[in-house]
């Protein structure tokens, strides 16, 4: 029997996707991107109206009207594409993973049709930096604070033969006491709030916390419910956010490595 299993293993090609092809990949997530040149005040207004969460909102910068897109709230439903006359498309790449909350929102000046998002403190990872992340160890404890299980399904996928998170020395561990990083999904429910705090306290310092999914980043579609406290940062401090509903394994990997890089590559 075991020989039959081994024979099958040997017949299988290597499925591991190179890290360069994963970083920034968001296939299957339907996260939105905005084409500045096509954006008009009327379209912007429609985007705000059609958005089921508050990902799109109107604001002002000085006296100029602007459109804000906060990825923390976006559930990738794609409903903003239809009324946008081509101004919103499914993002071909998505690198807003693992960033601090202040860097998750983008802004467009509606008069000059230009993006006015403040630049990120760190640009995207370059090859040398990726390499420098190898050879280190990171123990992750995943914590479900009330999620729908969509994020868990995608986090579990990180260990499959396509993504193989272990190649970076990253492991999922069973106890918060063994962990360097808490990967927290879901809106924090009232019934989980205490367990989330206790789990956070059980992780030895220094520790990293990553909020996963629209719910983890902001409460998502459950924001405002009487049974929900809010996003993860309503209960414990968060170092990086990974948007998406759910974020794909590639987005999760991008986010985890980004948080790791901010901590290790100075």
């Amino acid at each position: 029997m075991i020989f039959e299993v081994l024979e099958r293993s040997l017949q299988q090609p290597n499925r591991v996707i190179p890290v360069e092809a994963l970083l920034g990949n968001c296939d299957g997530s339907r996260m939105p991107d905005v084409t500045s040149a096509r954006l008009t005040p009327a379209i912007a207004q429609r985007l705000v109206e059609v958005c089921p969460t508050t990902a799109f909102s109107m604001g002002e910068l000085g006296d100029r009207p602007c459109l804000k897109l906060s990825y923390a709230e976006c559930i990738g439903c794609g409903r903003c594409e239809e009324p946008s006359e081509g101004a919103v498309v499914t993002a071909p790449r998505f690198t807003w993973c693992g960033l601090p909350k202040a860097n998750l929102a983008r802004l467009w000046d509606l008069e000059s049709h230009t993006e006015i998002t403040p630049p990120r403190p760190n640009p995207e990872m370059v090859r040398g930096q990726i390499r420098s992340l190898f050879g280190k160890a990171l123990n992750i404890r995943q914590l479900d604070a009330g999620s729908c299980n969509g994020c868990e399904a995608e986090i579990s996928a990180l260990t499959n033969p396509y993504y193989d998170l272990e190649r970076f020395g990253i492991h999922f561990v069973a106890s918060p006491k063994h962990a360097d990083m808490l990967l927290v999904t879901g809106p924090v429910t009232r019934n989980m709030a205490e367990a989330v705090k206790t789990t956070y306290e059980a992780v030895p310092s220094p520790k990293l916390v990553v909020a996963v999914g629209a719910c983890g980043c902001s409460g998502g579609i459950f924001a405002g419910s009487h049974a929900v406290v809010g996003g993860v940062d309503a209960v414990i401090p968060v170092d990086g956010y990974i948007p998406g509903c759910p974020p794909t394994p590639a987005m999760l990997m991008t986010g985890i490595l980004e948080v790791l890089r901010r901590r290790t590559v100075r």
Partner: peptide, 10 residues
């Protein structure tokens, strides 16, 4: 019911 989110009310 640790993940109770008040969904029916939503």
């Amino acid at each position: 019911f640790y993940t109770h989110k008040g969904t029916e009310k939503l």
